Amino acid sequence: MTAQGSTGRLLAKLVSSVPATISPADARARIAAYYASYAAGDVAGREALFSDDCLVEDPAGYVVARGAEALHRFFVEGIPPDWSVAFRLDRVAVVGNEAVATTLSVIDAGARGGLENVVTTHFVFDDAGLIRSLRTFFDADSMNDPAPNDPASNDSAPNDPRTH
Rank of each mutant, 00 (worst) to 15 (best):
P148Q: 11
L130K: 15
A152T: 08
S133T: 15
S133P: 01
N149H: 02
S142T: 15
N159V: 04
P161N: 06
S142W: 07
N149V: 03
R135Q: 12
A152Q: 09
D139I: 03
L134I: 10
G129M: 08
M143E: 10
P148A: 14
S133M: 14
S156K: 02
F138W: 13
S153C: 05
L130S: 13
D150F: 04
I131G: 05
S142I: 05
G129H: 08
N144K: 15
A140V: 05
S142F: 07
A152I: 01
P161F: 06
A147L: 14
A157K: 07
P161A: 14
L130A: 14
A140H: 03
D145M: 10
D155E: 02
N159I: 04
P148G: 12
F138M: 08
I131D: 01
M143K: 13
P161K: 11
S133C: 12
F137N: 04
F138V: 03
D145G: 08
D160E: 06
N154T: 01
T136K: 14
D139G: 13
P161Y: 07
S156F: 00
N159H: 06
S153Q: 05
D139Q: 10
N154E: 00
A152M: 08
P158R: 08
N154A: 03
R135A: 10
N144L: 14
T136P: 03
F137A: 01
S142R: 14
M143N: 10
A152F: 04
S153Y: 01
D150P: 08
D155P: 00
D141Y: 07
P146G: 07
S133R: 15
P146L: 13
D150N: 13
P146C: 11
I131H: 07
L130I: 12
R132G: 10
I131W: 09
R132M: 07
P146A: 10
N149M: 02
D160A: 12
S133D: 11
A147Q: 10
D141I: 09
N144I: 05
